[in-house]
Simulated scan of single mutants.
Amino acid sequence: MQRRLLQSVERLARLAQRDAGLPAIQRALGEELVAILGVDQAHVVVLSGGQPAYGVVATDRAGNGGAPPGADEYVLRRDDVPDALRWVADAGQAVTIPDASVDGALPAQLIKAYGLVSAAVLPLNAGGTVRAVVLLGARRPRAWAEGELHTASALADLAGTAIALRDARLAAAIDPLTGCLNHGAMRERLSEEIARARRQGTPLAVTILDLDDFKRVNDTYGHGTGDALLRHVAEALRAEYRSFDQVARYGGDEFVVILPNVKGPRVDIAAARALRVLREIHIARPDGGHEGITVSCGVAEWVEPEGPAELLERADQALRGSKAAGKDGLVRAPTPSAP
């Protein structure tokens, strides 16, 4: 047991050293908790906007965790029902759930999908804040020994260190003017989302938005006004989209929005929302008047076996089509022909 615990510690420590992505950290922690504690399943659910959002579950090798052996991913549906995951995220303290069937104890989505009967939920701290919650789950009634919770907390702390180092690296990848992801960080995040979509068989889309005639704004009103406009656009986009969508500054006056789990008409609707909210932005003129802005937009849905470069290129071609059609509009990239 002690030797296996040391192996777990070494594995989680290596994640911090090699700058692992968030899904890899979640998966590794879940797998180590299952192996060390012998539980049916271990969920690691990261927070978005302070609420549990993205989960990875690891199950025992025999598949007794209620899901296929190995690891699986899910997105928690948002509702207004409080539960233990939210309480732990807010309070930063562990709690045990003797009976998961009690209304509001755990998300109904997880109880149904994984057959949870009892559970323990612990906070995962990174950089001084709760960044995720760990759910140890069982498909039968069981008690949770203090030693088990102590071991789980220690391993979660190691994973938290890996997440904190990843956060520090990403902080260096934030565009200082707009607060959005910069170009390089956007490509890294898009790679992660493509990998997620490939594993889960879920849709993914990207939108590229370009401010029409932005050079004229700089030439007419000065670069200070242009910079303020870019900040306003970034804030409006972040406010408009879901907490787990990603807004990035692609370069200059271009922005990219990564849209997980969106396909078909919903892609066009999401892009049209951006155009609508950005058209409400106005530039204050020196004479006291106001001048509106327009935006051109290109959207593309991910298709296998595309990588980030191919997906962005199709969205960029659609954007160029919007510009050629007279600006202030939306063009959808056609689905590429099968090879």
Rank of each mutant, 00 (worst) to 15 (best):
D219R: 02
G21Q: 06
I174S: 15
A42E: 00
E235C: 13
D99P: 00
L33V: 06
C180P: 04
A248I: 05
I208G: 01
D72P: 03
A126L: 09
G222D: 11
A205Q: 01
L12E: 08
V133C: 00
D210Y: 10
A100W: 01
F255K: 13
I269T: 05
L158N: 10
A159E: 01
G127D: 05
K215M: 08
L312R: 04
A171M: 13
D227N: 13
G226T: 12
E313A: 07
L204Y: 00
A284N: 11
D287I: 14
K327E: 07
E280A: 15
V206K: 00
A171G: 10
G66C: 13
A108K: 11
A318Y: 08
A67L: 06
R3E: 11
E10P: 06
E306I: 05
G298I: 02
E254A: 12
D316E: 15
R4S: 08
V88I: 12
T161P: 09
D99N: 07
I163D: 09
P286F: 09
G307C: 13
G201C: 14
E148P: 08
T335E: 00
R4P: 02
V262W: 00
D80E: 13
G70S: 08
R276E: 13
V133Y: 03
A62W: 04
Q2C: 09
A113W: 13
V331K: 01
L15E: 11
L136I: 11
P52V: 14
P339L: 11
L177S: 15
D99E: 06
P265G: 11
P176E: 14
L211P: 00
R4I: 09
L116C: 12
A24D: 09
A113Y: 06
D99Q: 03
V117K: 06
Y114W: 10
R3Y: 11
L230D: 02
N125S: 08
L211S: 05
I163E: 10
R196I: 02
L209V: 02
A324E: 14
S118I: 06
